[in-house]
Design a protein around this nucleic acid. Structure first.
Length: 174
DNA sequence: AGGAAGATCTACT
DNA sequence: GTAGATCTTCCTA
């Protein structure tokens, strides 16, 4: 995926990321997983996250599109991709993956970072031209996208900003 | 330095 | 379904 891809709105990137393949290189081994569930997050107008109010995270969300944002909560790392043009605060959260060439569960935002050994050292790196972690096109198979409200947030927006592949067994909740 | 909150996970009832 | 574990970050003093 190139920079242009992440230049779209968070909501659009969240939809387009479904079905794409996330590749993680660790110790020369390549782990591949299909993205099956995502959520979109916005700036301070979004009451859902303390993340948007935070100094550092807010600044990171305004960075160049394609920047990786790692957010720690409850002993878990959650990974986001910054979207939109530089100066805009928007990001997409990866919530669940379907493992392709390994068999560690990735059906939750904290689990997938653990499975792929993603931690704070990826914070503020770019997903574009990254050797250890990047996204490629997946099979263009047809699937239905389901919209729902976000999960685990105390105050969500009325808008449905969670997207997942209908019928997929690896989503965190159905 | 200390406390509180948070986009979570697991286990137990 | 509910509770507890456990850690990073921000806020206050």
């Amino acid at each position: 995926m190139n920079k242009e891809f992440f230049n779209m709105s968070a909501e659009q990137v969240a939809r387009e990321l479904l079905g794409k393949i996330l590749v993680r290189n660790v110790d020369g081994k390549e782990m591949k997983a299909r993205i099956v569930e995502t959520e979109a997050y916005y700036d301070e107008k979004d009451p859902a996250s303390r993340a948007c109010k935070n100094g550092d995270l807010k600044e990171t969300m305004k960075m160049e599109e394609g920047t990786i944002l790692v957010y720690g909560v409850h002993n878990n790392w959650l990974i986001n991709f910054v979207t939109g043009e530089e100066g805009e605060a928007a990001a997409v959260l990866l919530r669940a993956l379907e493992p392709l060439n390994f068999s560690i569960k990735c059906n939750g935002p904290g689990l997938l970072t653990k499975a792929l050994q993603i931690d704070k050292r990826f914070h503020k790196q770019s997903i574009i031209n990254n050797k250890e972690l990047f996204v490629i096109d997946g099979d263009k198979e047809n699937f239905e996208i389901v919209e729902s409200n976000r999960i685990g947030v105390r105050k969500d927006l009325k808008k449905k900003l969670r997207f997942y592949i209908k019928g997929n067994e690896h989503v965190s909740r159905k």
